[in-house]
Amino acid sequence: MKPDQGMSLIVKTVTCWINSFIFLFGIYVMLFGHITPGGGFPGGVIIACSFILITLAAGKEFALKLFSLDDASVVDSFSIFLFLFIGFLGLILGNYFLQNFMAAGEPFRLPSAGTIVLNNVAIGLKVGAAIFAMFMYLSLFRLDEGEETE
């Protein structure tokens, strides 16, 4: 972090401290969406928020060095393929598109809902990348036509 960018040293230090926890919390919400309140979308939003916090504290350049818009676009599109891949895997291993082909597992544990965890991860990545990209595009005042979410 260059000293002349972003906000004051206090903000930057606090951001350093709490940001990893925010990120971790986002991953938790994303992974445990099937047994607690949450899921792919809230988890993705929290992850995007941690990046937005970095942007606010340390400036755009630093945030874009960390996770550029091209990266966001790649993650955004790739996660859709992940989702469709899971869907078609259900078609191949089961009978229907998006069929839950994995074993149900025991209740209240992480592997307890078959493919829903994987779907949540795909959606979370997609939403996180898309919201970060939207925030950056709107704040950079240099818009493109790729404002598509979900």
Binding site: V127, L138, F141, L143, E147, T149, E150
Partner: peptide
Amino acid sequence: IINFGITALVVAIAI
């Protein structure tokens, strides 16, 4: 989620 997308788009158009 859908309205979030629409709002982002309408703000972009307004800018």
